[in-house]
Nucleic acid binder design. Structure first.
Length: 629
DNA sequence: TTGGGGACTTGCTATGAAATAA
DNA sequence: TTATTTCATAGCAAGTCCCCAA
């Protein structure tokens, strides 16, 4: 990249560029769609002509425990059969994990474990609380420690073997291009770790054999060889799908796939299309917003519920909320599946009128808790929807996700509820970058601005994380550094003062040089302090916010690039150059010539969306709170 | 119209490599 | 050189949305 660009700033955007350059660069991106029809045609057309790969890499066979590692039952050592021992190691490995303290996990594990036992073992081992897995647990801890302690050469050797494996199994040929596969290693057997209060947690995920796997490749390609002595469940050639191999997992009875890496042309094109669809939404979003406002007044409950639900989806980034099988998954909801018990209405709260309090577990059992002032008709409608219902009843009982999406399709081809998340996320990101960035700021301040814009989106999407384990310690370390820097600055100030006096007395060239040197030192130290302080703020603000998901899935990379280039090379002298129509071609040109010449562009025209009216600064203060339950 | 399966995207955590500081 | 921190990504769970059959 071009020299002279502040290093830190480059780093923060390189994260996006790196992602983008492999996903969209090399001229692989499709042209921007001219119409919804074209997009549909592209979606429906045959996806590939040639697909060749080596098939999945299977997990190594179970390696029995050494003789000295014993499992004990009721205080006595018991030599388990191989199958039972293997499942016991799954539990033993997890002994220090919270999962093994949960009753559901324990019961499911024990139930499935018993199925793997011999008749004699089943007669003997009746209660989990009499099982002692501590030696097994210690064995795996020691094994991990031994691995860490391996000499550098040994580790290097293992690394080279892994690389060789990746070269062999980790790539496929798709229409003449060598593409990276996302997950070429078959998932090893283990215990199912569902999130939240998942009723199936602890169940045995059984080992997948070649006989369970369907291979997808082109007819004329070299069919992957199954491991010796085995055969595939099926070999097919379906060029309307993108997966290379598929199998059904036993816990949830769902299909799992081997697919391409996000860096592949195929995934990159889909990613591109996603953002183009979201950008098309800006052309109709005002109309949709007017429509859902009009629907609030409708006497038809279907319409008024749909209007309020769309308002939530648009304003609060709620997920669509498909129906789920109650007894087989954790109890999580989205917009359409909200229940009365998830909503509380406050006529006055926190100095606002018509406040809606939403409190529910969303995707991955992450808690969404938000008190948000809403428009008056929304408030009264909600009151109506909740009237005469039990807490466990559906809030939007006349609404389904399919009817909602069908309605959206009428407004725009390809529009579904989840497009609003992408659209609003990227719009907020661009707006926040504009608001928070000043050209005259230091690099550290610009990085902070970038991260804050990213954070505004992550908060909007309720992307949370558990605070890193080392968080408190690293904050302390940073504070120590700040204090040390302050002391250094005080000393430098004192030395500068002395140098000034010395120069005033002597007035010669040497004392002048010393004075200038001290001034430079002080300036440098103050800059370093500024950088450290900014880092501390950034770290603290980011304690519970996960930036990665929005960065990867919701923020159009072109916004980052436009911002970065604008800050590095100044605003565009040719307004209108980067107008919507030209975005893909401009990006293509820009990326292909990234190291040499970068065309000017006008930041602010990449998306140029219409805000959803949410006060993002305000929402940061009243952000959804809570964590996984 | 509905329910379920299939295909795909989104999301969080753990881990290990690379970068950075001491 | 070593310790610590940061960052990318592997791993896999859990969503969304489309399609098809009953």
């Amino acid at each position: 990249m071009k020299a002279g660009v502040p290093r830190g700033l480059r780093q923060v955007v390189c994260l996006r560029l790196g992602n983008l350059s492999c996903r969209w660069a090399s001229g692989t991106q499709p042209k921007a769609s001219k119409s919804g029809l074209e997009e549909k045609q592209r979606k429906d057309r045959v996806k590939w002509r040639q697909l060749e790969h080596r098939g999945p890499y299977f997990a190594p066979a179970y390696e029995p425990l050494p003789e000295e590692v014993q499992f004990c039952y009721d205080g006595k050592p018991v030599k388990l059969s191989l199958a039972a021992e293997e499942v016991a190691t799954f539990y033993g490995k997890m002994l220090d994990h919270e999962y093994t303290t949960k009753e559901v996990f324990q019961n499911n594990f024990f139930n499935d474990w018993q199925k793997e036992m011999t008749v004699e073992e089943r007669c003997l081992i009746k209660h989990l609380d009499k099982c002692d897995f501590t030696e097994i647990h210690r064995h795996f801890i020691d094994k991990a420690a031994a691995w860490r302690a391996l000499p550098r050469e040994e580790k290097q050797k293992l690394k080279e073997e892994a690389e060789k494996l990746e070269q062999e199994f980790g790539y496929c040929i798709l229409d003449g291009h060598r593409e990276k596969i996302g997950n070429f290693k078959m998932e090893p057997p283990g215990l199912f770790c569902g999130r939240g209060d998942h009723p199936k947690m602890g169940m045995l995920k059984r080992r997948i054999r070649p006989e369970d796997v369907i291979i997808n490749c082109s007819r004329d390609s070299k069919i992957p060889e199954p491991p010796a002595g085995h055969q595939w469940k099926e070999v097919r050639s379906d060029n309307t799908v993108t997966w290379l191999a598929a199998w059904t997992e036993n816990v949830q009875n769902s299909i799992k796939y081997i697919m391409l890496n996000p860096s592949s042309k195929l995934k990159g094109e889909k990613d591109w299309q996603k953002y183009e669809t979201a950008r098309r939404l800006k052309g109709v979003v005002n109309e949709i917003r007017s429509q859902y406002r009009a629907d609030w007044k409708s006497l038809d409950m279907k319409k008024s519920q749909r209007g309020v639900a769309l308002y939530f989806i648009d304003k609060l980034a709620l997920r669509t909320g498909n129906e789920k099988e109650e007894s087989r998954t954790a109890d999580t909801v989205g917009c359409c599946s909200l229940r009365v018990e998830h909503v509380r209405l406050h006529r006055h709260a926190n100095g606002h009128q018509h406040v809606v309090e939403l409190d529910f577990l969303g995707k991955d059992s992450v808690r969404y808790h938000n008190c948000v002032p809403v428009e008056k008709p929304v408030f009264w409608n909600l009151q109506l929807f909740m009237a005469n219902k039990d807490p466990g009843d559906k809030l939007f009982d006349k609404l389904t996700t399919s009817s909602l999406n069908k309605h959206l399709q009428d407004s725009m081809d390809g529009l579904t509820a989840k497009v609003f998340r992408t659209y609003n996320a990227s719009t907020i990101f661009q707006e926040q970058l504009q608001v928070l960035t000043r050209a005259e700021d230091s690099t550290a301040a610009k990085i902070l601005a970038y991260n804050r814009a990213n954070r505004a989106v992550a908060i909007y999407c309720n992307h949370q994380r558990a605070a890193p384990k080392t968080f408190e310690k690293s904050v302390r370390n940073l504070q120590t550094k700040i204090q040390a820097k302050k002391i250094q600055i005080a000393e430098a100030q004192e030395e500068l003062r002395k140098a000034e006096v010395d120069h005033r007395i002597k007035g010669d060239g040497k004392s002048k040089r010393i004075l200038e040197k001290k001034q430079r030192l002080l300036q440098k130290l103050e800059e370093q302090l500024g950088h450290l302080s900014t880092q501390a703020i950034d770290k603290e603000e980011n304690k519970h916010v996960a930036l990665g998901t929005s960065k990867l899935n919701y923020l159009d990379p072109r916004i980052s690039i436009a911002w970065y280039i604008n800050l590095s090379w100044g605003p565009c002298g040719r307004p209108g150059l980067f107008c919507d129509k030209d975005v893909p071609d401009q990006m293509s040109l820009m990326l292909s010539s990234m190291p040499q010449v970068l065309p000017p562009l006008s930041f602010g025209m990449v998306w140029g969306g219409t805000s959803n009216g949410l006060e993002h600064e305000g929402q940061v203060a009243a952000q959804p709170t809570g964590s996984r339950r």
